[in-house]
Nucleic acid binder design. Structure first.
Lengths: 194, 194, 194, 194
DNA sequence: TATGAATGAGTATTCATTCAT
DNA sequence: GATGAATGAATACTCATTCAT
C-alpha cells in the first residue's frame, strides 16, 4: 500500500532536500523571526515552494522542526554535563552554553520563551526533557554547595530564558555576555554575609 | 499661511484624536505585537483610518510614538528616584519598576531590546536619556556601597532588558518576578568571601 | 463612531463598484461555476482585487450575493403572479418564467439545486420565501382544477429544479424548452382516462 | 520490440491496477465532483500517483474513462430492454433505470448533461450509441401506443437528463423520484381529453 | 515498471497606504 | 479636517503533472 510514508526512511534526495530546507529555514528564521516568508526560505534553499510543503505541512511545522533540532543539541550538552566530575562547573557551563548556542537563533529563543506557556505545543515533550535535564544539573550543583539551596527550578529556567532572549535580541558580544552572566552566577552562588 | 502645520499646536479635537489613537495602539500593540493591523487600531480608537495617517505617517511612526510615551514614564520614575534618600533603594526600586511596568507591553519591551542597536532610530534620544538617568542611579548606588563597584552600565542595562523581555514573553507572575530579581540583585550587591 | 458600516447606505462610488462586481461575478460564475477565480472577477469588473473583499468577505459571500439577487427577481414574479386572475395560468407561467430566467445562470441554478439540502446556508430564508410563494401558486391552481390534486409541493419544486438544471447545463433553445415543459405540464394537469 | 504498447493487451497486474484506479476514481469523483484531486484518487486506489498517469494521460482522460464505463452499463440495459415484450414497459423502465443508476454519480450525470453539446468530446461515440438505443425504445413504445406520437427524441433525452441532474444534485429519495417520474411519465402517455 | 519527490503556476485572502468624497 | 473606499503587492498553501530512483 503505497503513499503511507509513516516510519519509512526518506529517499536519499528527499533527505538531502530536507536538510537544505531546514538549513535555509534556520537562517531565514534567525534573521526575520516568524515573519519569515516561505517563499524566501524556498529561494534560499534552492528548492521549489511545494517541496517544503511536502515535508512540513505548515509554516508552523517547519518552524517547529527547526527548533526541535536546536533544542536537541542543548539537550545533548545537558546530558553530557550531567556526568561531569565537578557539578558546579557542569551547571554553570551548561547555563553559559545555552546562552551562547542560542544567540542569533530567534526561532530557538522564541521557542524557549514560549515553552511552559503552551504545553500542548508539539515541541512540549522536548522542552520537558530539557527541563528535566536542567533540574538534574541544578540539584547536583546544589548538593555540591555550588548553588544556593533556596534557588528553585522556576527561576533558574526563567533566568536562562531571560539571558537567551536578551543576548539574542540585543546581539550581545562575548564581553557583555560574560559580564552579565557573572552577575547572575554570583547571585546564584552561596554568599557569606556578616 | 495655511498648510504649514509645523510647530503649530494641534487643534483641540486633533489632540483628542491623537490620544485616542495612541491609547488604542498601545492596547493593540500590547496584544498582537508588531503583527497588529492599522485597521484594528483605527477601529478600537473609534476613528477613521486616514485620521491615524494624518498624525503618524507610517505604521512604524505610530509604533514608535507609543513606545516613546511609555519610555517617558520610566524616565519620570528614574528622575524622581535620583533624588531619593537611600541610593541603593532608589536603584533597585527603579530596576523593579522597569520590569513591572513593561511587562505585558510587547511593543515597549521590543523597543528597549532594540535600543542601542539602531542609533539612528527616532527613539534614540529618549533612550539616551533613559540610559543617562539609569547611569546616575547606578553610580549613586555604587558610591553608597549598595552595588558592587566593578559592575558597569552596559551589563546593568543588559540585565534590565533581559528581565523585561523574559517577564513579558513568559508572563511571569509576581512571585517568579520577585525570585528572579532576587537572584540578580544578589549578584549586583557587594559580597563577602572568606 | 466610524467604520461601523452597518445599515449605513453605501457611498456613491462604493455602490457603483458593488454593482460592477456583482455584474462581473454573475458573468464569470455563469461561465465557470464555482470554480471561478476572484482574480478573474476583479479583472472583468475593472476593479482591484481587494475592492471585492471590502464588500464581500469571502468568495462564498459574493457567490451568495449574486444568487440572492437573482432569486429576488423570481420571487417578485411569483408574488405578482399570486394575484393573477387565472390561477392555472399564473402557476404555469411562473414555472416557465423560472426556467427561462435561470437558464445560463449556473450559480443561480446551483443555488436552487442546493436549497432544501443545506438549511443553514445564508440563502435559506430567501429560498423559504420562494418555496412559500410557489406553494401559494400551486394550491390556487389546484383549487381551480388546473393542476391535479394529488400532486405535492415536493415534486413540483423537484420538477422546477430539474428543468432549470437541464435547461442551463444543456443550453436548451426555446423550442426544446417549450416541448419539454409541455410534457411536464401535461403530466401535472388533470387527465381524463376511460 | 518493446515500448510500442499500442494495441497490446495490458499485463495482468497493469489491468488490475487500471480497475483499482477506475473504482477509486468513481468513488472520489462521485463524492467531490471535478474538484477531486489526483492524489486522493491514488491514495484510495492504493497506488502511486504516476501509476495513474501511465494509463490515463490527464485528469480529464481518467474522468472520461470513468464516465464511459458507466455509460456502457446504461447502454447494456437499453440494448437488453430493446427486445422486451412490452415496449411501453421497456421504455419507462429504462427511463427509471437511467435516473436511478446515475443518482450519486456526479461525474456521470455531468457527462450526460454535456453530451450533445461538445460533439468532439471523446465520449461522443458512446453517447451517440446511447441516443440511438434510446431512440429505438422510444419508437417502439410509440408504435405500441404507450407514448404519445408527437413526442420527439430531443425532449425525451432532455427530460431524462433533467431528471438525472436533479435527482443527483438534490439527493432525491426513492419516494420523490417516484412521484416526480410519475408526473413526467403521465405527460408522455397519450391522454384523453373531452 | 511503479513509485512518490519535485515543481511552478494558481488560489483565496490580508494589509499598509493613498486619494476621492 | 476627517472619512473609508480602492489598491497592488505579499502571504500561505494546493494541485496537476513530470522525472529521478
Amino acid at each position: 500500500m503505497p503513499e503511507s510514508t509513516v516510519g519509512r526512511p526518506l529517499r536519499a534526495d528527499a533527505q538531502r532536500n530536507r536538510l537544505k530546507v531546514l538549513a535555509a529555514a534556520e537562517r531565514v528564521l534567525a534573521k526575520d523571526g516568524s515573519a519569515a516568508s516561505m517563499r524566501e526560505i524556498a529561494r534560499q534553499a534552492g528548492v521549489g515552494l511545494a517541496t517544503i510543503y511536502r515535508q512540513f505541512p505548515t509554516k508552523e511545522a517547519l518552524y517547529e522542526a527547526v527548533v526541535v533540532e536546536r533544542v536537541r543539541r542543548l539537550l545533548d550538552h545537558a546530558h553530557a554535563a550531567a556526568h561531569a566530575t565537578d557539578p558546579g562547573d557542569a551547571f554553570f557551563t551548561f547555563f553559559t552554553f545555552a546562552v551562547t548556542e542560542t544567540t542569533g537563533e530567534k526561532a530557538l529563543v522564541d521557542s524557549l520563551a514560549v515553552a511552559g506557556l503552551d504545553p500542548k505545543a508539539g515541541t512540549a515533550p522536548m522542552h520537558r526533557d530539557l527541563e528535566k535535564a536542567t533540574g538534574v544539573l541544578l540539584r547536583r550543583a546544589q548538593a555540591a554547595g555550588a548553588v544556593r539551596a533556596e534557588v528553585g527550578m522556576a527561576e533558574v529556567l526563567a533566568l536562562i530564558t531571560a539571558m537567551c532572549l536578551a543576548a539574542d535580541r540585543q546581539h550581545w558580544d562575548e564581553q557583555l555576555r560574560t559580564r552579565s552572566l557573572t552577575v547572575v552566577f554570583d547571585g546564584l552562588r552561596p554568599q557569606l554575609r556578616p
